[in-house]
């Protein structure tokens, strides 16, 4: 998990070459409660950094997920579409949301690393 970076809106992003995998943090899924539905974008969609890219819903709440990096959506996790409980069970692993192909090297300097994020949500 050390390679992950986190946003203030509780998304995580993990880089593999020019592919960014994005999901919501374990803390976020815990706050949200049982996830009942995830609305994912179409593959091919072109995103600006900070754009609304997905919606994650519990019974009584809906939260927007924002793109932590700019790029094109190359893959979405259909498994969480069919089985949204995956987000609760493994938010930062099997419960990933989407993969974004980034153009150039993304600037992750504004994001928190795992320990900074842990401090952030501990407050």
């Amino acid at each position: 998990m050390s390679d992950k970076h986190y946003t203030e809106d509780h998304e995580w992003v993990s880089m593999d070459g020019d592919i960014a995998t994005v999901g919501i943090s374990n803390y976020a899924q815990d706050q949200l409660g049982d996830v009942v539905f995830v609305e994912l974008p179409d593959t091919g969609a072109s995103l600006e950094k900070g754009a609304e890219v997905a919606v994650v819903e519990s019974v009584k709440a809906a939260s927007e997920v924002y793109a932590p990096v700019a790029g094109d959506v190359v893959e979405v996790n259909d498994a969480i579409g069919d089985n949204p409980s995956l987000v609760n069970e493994d938010a930062e692993g099997e419960g990933w949301f989407l993969k974004i192909k980034v153009a150039g090297a993304p600037d992750l300097s504004e994001l928190m690393d795992a320990s900074a994020y842990a401090d952030e949500v501990a407050d």
Partner: peptide
């Protein structure tokens, strides 16, 4: 008694 709304919505 209380109803499982999560399962109903999933």
């Amino acid at each position: 008694r209380r109803v499982d709304e999560t399962a109903a919505a999933r």
